[in-house]
């Protein structure tokens, strides 16, 4: 990782020189998750163990990207993690790689994506660039970065496979699309970027910043209360359709009643077949037409 080493060398210069730099701020967000939850082969029960908790490759890559942007632009990097108190040791070690601040938003491990995104958006409010992993290992919806961008009214570029700094405040990024295509983006701050784990390998923290008194202390901030916080979801029950009385089948013989019940031997509309391989457009039109006919779609 020569790139990482190169920027590690210039980092110490960058750190204290926020003023001489661009005045930009960068935040890297990470989620503290069980990297290897246990699954019982027979019951499928999932078990977690705090000792296996850590940060995914994508989250580590996000910090590395943030550090590289930081050293290129002379900007400071904050590490922001929404996690409970036991995560602090891990947050400190993560931040030791070169962040100037380590911030923990005090949320339990199972907090909803909405709550996490709202809190992270508030905690990174003064950052020009927020870098996240593409999706978390446990929930994995990938909605948090998008949601942060939305709340902050920032640009978003998600699922990136390469991020290169251009002039201060502008990055070039590459995103993977379906079918092996690539999308080249130019993103201006304020922006939220989410990156795949393969983008970069996080540099190793220098020994000195791991030692007591050398690593930044973890600042703890309260989560943001959501607007709907007064309504709490206790549990969701399965659908229970109401009982409906149905007339019994006619027919004196059991066979006739079964025939009537199952609807067999009655004329019905035959299924329609459109071969999509021949004409995909016609197939799509046919599906839409049919859905509209059944009342699932508004025909307009």
């Amino acid at each position: 990782m020569t790139a990482a080493e190169g920027s590690a060398a210039s980092r110490s210069g960058a750190r204290g020189s926020g003023a001489s730099g661009s005045g930009l701020r960068i935040a890297a967000c990470a989620k503290w998750v069980d990297l290897r939850p246990g699954v019982d082969a027979l019951t499928g029960r999932v078990s977690t163990d705090e000792r296996r908790f850590g940060f995914s490759a994508a989250d580590a890559a996000a910090l590395e990207v943030a550090l590289r942007l930081g050293s290129e632009w002379g900007a400071e990097v904050d590490v922001v993690v929404a996690a409970p108190a036991p995560a602090e040791g891990a947050i400190r070690s993560l931040a030791a790689a070169g962040a100037s601040r380590a911030i923990r938003v005090d949320l339990p491990s199972g907090a909803s994506s909405k709550q996490v995104a709202a809190s992270l958006a508030a905690a990174t409010a003064d950052a020009d660039v927020v870098v996240c992993g593409d999706y978390s290992l446990d929930v994995g919806s990938g909605s948090v970065p998008a949601s942060i961008a939305h709340r902050r009214g920032a640009a978003q570029a998600l699922g990136l496979i390469s991020v290169t700094p251009e002039s201060p405040g502008v990055v070039r990024a590459v995103r993977r699309l379906d079918g092996g295509r690539r999308e080249h983006l130019r993103v201006r701050t304020p922006a939220v970027l989410s990156v795949e784990g393969s983008v970069a390998t996080l540099r190793r923290a220098p020994l000195r910043s791991l030692r007591a008194g050398h690593a930044p202390a973890v600042e703890v901030i309260d989560p943001v209360g959501l607007a709907v916080a007064s309504v709490r979801l206790d549990r969701t029950e399965p659908v229970r359709p109401r009982a409906r009385a149905l007339p019994g089948p006619n027919g004196s013989a059991a066979f006739d009643r079964v025939v009537e019940l199952t609807g067999a031997l009655v004329a019905r509309t035959p299924p329609r077949r459109v071969d999509a391989a021949d004409d995909a457009d016609a197939a799509a039109d046919a599906i839409i037409e049919q859905l509209a006919a059944w009342g699932y779609l508004d025909p307009s």
């Binding site: 540099r203 190793r204 220098p206 020994l207 791991l210």
Partner: peptide, 25 residues
């Protein structure tokens, strides 16, 4: 200090005066 492998000892002549690890600095 975890996640840190000692890769050798520092010496001053015959005397051991510290350790080298696999981290930067």
């Amino acid at each position: 200090i975890c996640s840190t492998t000692v890769t050798g000892v520092l010496r001053d002549g015959n005397r051991v005066v510290g350790v080298r690890t696999d981290r930067p600095d």
